[in-house]
Amino acid sequence: MQSFFIYISVILTIIILIPLYRVYIGPSIYDRVLGAGSIGTKTLVLICLIGFAFDRFDMFLDITIAYAVLNFIGVLAMAKYLNSMRGKNE
């Protein structure tokens, strides 16, 4: 079961390439922020899987919740700022 979680975490790490491509290519800033947000979501699942590997899932679940809040606040702050700047630049 341990190695199963570890292989899943490696596959998830490789899947990060897809939103990373969107962060690099993404024509607008919104695509890039969304790509960063989805990479943050993958980070959450990876922290859960690492918690299984360390056999201390209860502690890592708390950390995951805090990460989720942080990720949400970060994307929200960027989106709010971009929204407030939109009228002035265009």
């Binding site: 690099y24 922020v33 790509g35 990479i39 980070t43």
Partner: peptide, 10 residues
């Protein structure tokens, strides 16, 4: 800037 954010998360 966004790439740096992703870097920090990883």
């Amino acid at each position: 800037a966004v790439a740096l954010t992703v870097f920090s998360f990883l």
